[in-house]
């Protein structure tokens, strides 16, 4: 069985985490700071990224192999796996850990009153959003490459 719509669940959780990170940055930049709210959003970000990982495990370890065979069949699409997917699947773990330290920081500091903690948190959230965009772009490349490969009938 090849990758189906269930791959979208992984992307959906990842997208929600990026939006949540954007909301958190917005709250941190504004003066409407509330430790309780920031902590909840931080925890939500980490949970969403972990859910993104859990939901992609069966897709990547059991289903993607069929698509990989197709993608690798054509010189036009092989780079999407060899560079795109190989990079994406491994960089993801860096993002997973980055997302995990976000709630650690919010729950161990007074974000509302400590400008240095705020600066640190904004930097980490920005890295998370930028990293998420990179992963999303790689995911789009792989997705398009799979469509092209299947349409060419490779395998």
């Amino acid at each position: 069985m090849s990758v189906g719509l269930e791959a979208g669940v992984h992307v959906f959780f990842a997208l929600l985490s990026m939006i949540s990170a954007g909301v958190a940055i917005g709250l941190l930049i504004s003066n409407k700071l509330d430790n309780s709210k920031i902590r909840k959003i931080a925890l939500l970000i980490a949970i969403l990224v972990w859910l993104s990982w859990f939901t992609v495990i069966p897709v990547y370890t059991q289903e993607y192999g069929v698509d990989k065979g197709k993608i690798k069949s054509y010189p036009e699409t092989v780079a999407a796996h060899a560079i795109g997917m190989e990079t994406k699947e491994h960089i993801f773990y860096t993002g997973l850990i980055l997302a995990t330290i976000i709630p650690i920081i919010t729950y161990t500091t007074d974000i509302a009153n400590d400008k240095n903690a705020r600066k640190l948190l904004i930097s980490l959230l920005a890295l998370l959003v930028l990293g998420g965009i990179v992963l999303d772009a790689l995911g789009a490349w792989i997705s398009i490459a799979a469509k092209i490969a299947w349409s060419m009938g490779g395998g």
């Binding site: 990079t87 960089i91 860096t94 980055l98 930097s123 890295l127 990179v134």
Partner: peptide, 9 residues
């Protein structure tokens, strides 16, 4: 943190 992220990529 920035170095770790960019080095990883």
């Amino acid at each position: 943190a920035i170095a770790a992220t960019f080095l990883s990529i």
